[in-house]
């Protein structure tokens, strides 16, 4: 944010790995200090954060599409307002996160371009289609519930801008989760048609939601490094287990069936143990071959292309008014 004012670029000059600096950096994290833009950080810390934060931002931006497609069909005035506000918040969360990545030197032009040309990744969950109205409730209950687990952890992250974005997002996301629960509780106890819709939605969203937490710890090479640097303080499997235990209790209460024949309660540990996750499906979707990858990218590209003359016109007007002064 100050590159064009400082005579020398302090940040880049100090980028080469230096054991003393690294030790001081890690000591700051151990003391619970936040690393702020401009502070010395290992190149790998910066790289991992830009990767994670921009993927997270893209997930929010692309995440507007599946739910956005149901705004025109919301079945009452209240649900319509709620859904617009929710999708609007997702745009807001994308905006906060792009900002956090910008503090590390990434530009929004670059990040958006990487998203549009398919180079950047985003959460695989948004490549599944919402097929009925009950999916709006199920996404709030499951997908947002899972996201909150991850985001609550990241609110404690060592990088100041990411952690602050997460604090804001968690506060707002709680409404998303609650409106989803409200819908699913109602439909699970509603008319036979509503109940069938809720169960069908659970059947389709359960496994993709569990995949949102990422590969098992044994297959997740980044985790120890990210833990030491205070970025991810809980592992994928820990977060997944917390989510599973809470969600299954609620599902049973409202009479919904978890679509997992191998699911069992383990008395010894007090945890629900799930069956095998289909990681082949996960990697297929992550690598671009999910049910909606092409559709999502096409929609983002269309909005971007259709908006180009608009962005250019306002830039041109600003330029003209400046030269007029």
């Amino acid at each position: 944010m100050c590159a064009n004012i400082l005579p020398t670029d302090i940040t880049l000059a100090s980028q080469n790995a230096d054991p003393a600096k690294l030790a001081a950096f890690e000591a700051r994290i151990t003391r619970g200090e936040k690393i702020e833009p401009g502070d010395w950080m290992p190149a790998e810390y910066r790289k991992q954060l830009v990767r994670m934060i921009s993927q997270h931002a893209h997930s929010e931006y692309v995440g507007m599409l599946p739910e956005g497609s149901w705004i025109t069909r919301a079945p009452n005035l209240r649900q319509k307002l709620v859904l617009i506000a929710k999708v609007q918040d997702e745009g807001g969360h994308g905006q906060y996160l792009y900002h956090a990545a910008e503090t590390l030197g990434a530009t929004r032009e670059e990040m958006i371009e990487a998203l549009l040309n398919g180079r950047a990744k985003y959460s695989s969950i948004f490549n599944y289609p919402p097929l009925t109205w009950a999916d709006m409730g199920m996404i709030g209950w499951l997908v947002d519930g899972a996201a909150i687990k991850n985001q609550t952890m990241l609110a404690h992250c060592s990088y100041g801008p990411y952690s602050r974005a997460m604090v804001r997002i968690c506060a707002e996301e709680s409404f998303h989760n609650k409106q989803g629960k409200e819908m699913i509780y109602r439909y699970a106890l509603g008319t036979p048609k509503q109940k069938a819709m809720a169960q069908d939605a659970l059947n389709r969203w359960w496994w993709p939601t569990l995949m949102m937490f990422g590969p098992h710890d044994s297959d997740s090479p980044n985790t120890p490094q990210l833990a030491r640097w205070g970025i991810k303080t809980k592992s994928n499997d820990e977060l997944r287990q917390e989510f599973v235990d809470e969600t299954i209790a609620e599902a049973h209460l409202v009479g919904l069936t978890i679509p997992d024949p191998d699911l069992r309660y383990d008395e010894a540990s007090g945890h629900w143990l799930i069956g095998k996750i289909d990681w082949d499906e996960f990697w297929r979707v992550v690598n671009g071959d999910g049910p909606c990858n092409k559709e999502r990218l096409a929609a983002r590209n269309k909005a971007h292309d259709d908006g180009q003359w608009v962005r250019e016109a306002l830039a041109a007007y600003a330029h003209k008014s400046k030269s007029a002064i």
């Binding site: 707002e172 629960k181 509780y185």
Partner: peptide
Amino acid sequence: PYRQPHFYKV
């Protein structure tokens, strides 16, 4: 008010 979590009586 529907943007606030306490709007939903879950």
